[in-house]
């Protein structure tokens, strides 16, 4: 079933009206209906622009989680002319929440790795709702090392509510799997571009998020804790998630202002779920632009800039 967000209902209603008129027009054309259609279409754009410019952080979180939003493999399909998926961490197993493989991004050879969510129950069972186990992070590191070996740039597409907080994940040291990536990604001698395409959920996001350029899709979010989790702790109830979403400064604009991210990838009007192709086209270009900036940098400079980029994060006084 198609997911409908509360604040998008007026848009969908207007769309239905337009579709209805178009059907009428098709069966019995009339100039009056044609005029009406163009009027309503203009109104639709205005309405979408209006909603879009007034989105609050909580509404953006809902868009970031929309089930019709393009997921990692949707982007790969739309952007890459070739994708050779590679599996497994060589120790325990393969994690379907974290696909990875070599790909042609435009005319560039890259390694793509990211979180993959599912649209229905069956897919979500396979993808574990985009929450990776330790094996996912270890597979990612194995393949990123391979990319490093052949001087292939790395593109990570982040979309996770968080790393999986399960018994097996704890037993196989999920925390260490993430920590290890944080340290080792600092040392990979190849350009890394990380893009949060949907949910940037805490350590699970950061575990493939150490990069030379960190971008966010316009309606994606990146946060230390989910708004619901924060609300449950500080407001004592998950119902306060909208307030928590504002307080956490997790939206693309806020993160840009805080200097955490390097750029915002524009989404089609209303959000990426309205037009996958346009979203993918914008993402493709943003990554190509970032790659062009990084490709010519000598390794020591690349690594130094990467270190300094994360080194500077934090605000404090020194009396």
């Amino acid at each position: 079933m198609k997911q409908v967000l509360e604040f998008e209902k007026p848009v969908l209603k207007l769309r239905d009206e337009i579709d209805e008129l178009k059907r009428k027009q098709a069966s019995k054309p009339s100039p009056a209906i044609a005029i009406e259609i163009s009027k309503l279409e203009a109104r639709l754009i205005e309405l979408q622009k209006d909603i879009n410019s007034n989105l609050n952080p909580w509404q953006r979180v809902q868009i970031a989680r929309h089930t019709q939003r393009p997921f990692m493999l949707d982007y790969v399909k739309l952007i890459c002319s070739e994708f050779v998926e590679l599996h497994g961490d060589r120790h325990i197993g393969d994690d379907n929440a974290m696909p990875a493989g070599f790909a042609m991004w435009g005319d560039k050879r890259v390694l793509v790795v990211g979180h993959q969510k599912g649209r229905d129950t069956k897919e979500n069972l396979l993808r574990n709702f985009g929450s990776a186990h330790p094996e996912g992070y270890r597979k990612a590191m194995r393949l990123m090392r391979l990319a490093d070996k052949f001087q292939i740039p790395i593109v990570t597409l982040i979309d996770t509510p968080g790393a999986f907080p399960g018994i097996g994940a704890e037993e196989r040291n999920i925390a260490e799997a993430i920590a290890y990536n944080l340290r080792e990604m600092m040392l990979l001698k190849t350009p890394i571009i990380a893009v949060v395409i949907g949910e940037g959920g805490s350590g699970g996001a950061l575990g493939i998020g150490i990069a030379d350029r960190v971008l966010l899709m316009e309606n994606a979010y990146y946060s230390v804790i989910s708004p619901e989790g924060c609300a449950a702790i500080l407001w004592k109830h998950r119902e306060h998630a909208p307030e928590a979403a504002s307080a956490l400064k997790l939206s693309a604009q806020d993160l840009k202002q805080l200097g955490i991210i390097d750029g915002i990838v524009p989404e089609p009007l209303g959000g990426a779920h309205h037009d996958h192709l346009e979203a993918a086209t914008n993402l493709k270009q943003a990554v190509l632009d970032a790659l062009a900036e990084l490709e010519s940098l000598p390794h020591d400079q690349l690594l130094d800039q990467r270190y300094q980029k994360f080194r500077k994060f934090g605000e404090f006084t020194e009396g």
Binding site: L182, M186, S202, G209, V224, K249, R311, F313, G314
Partner: peptide
């Protein structure tokens, strides 16, 4: 969590060091 994303980035900073 009171420092939001800045806290998350301390994980990256310390690991980098």
């Amino acid at each position: 969590m009171h420092e939001g994303i800045l806290s998350l980035m301390q994980m990256a900073k310390t690991s980098g060091a």
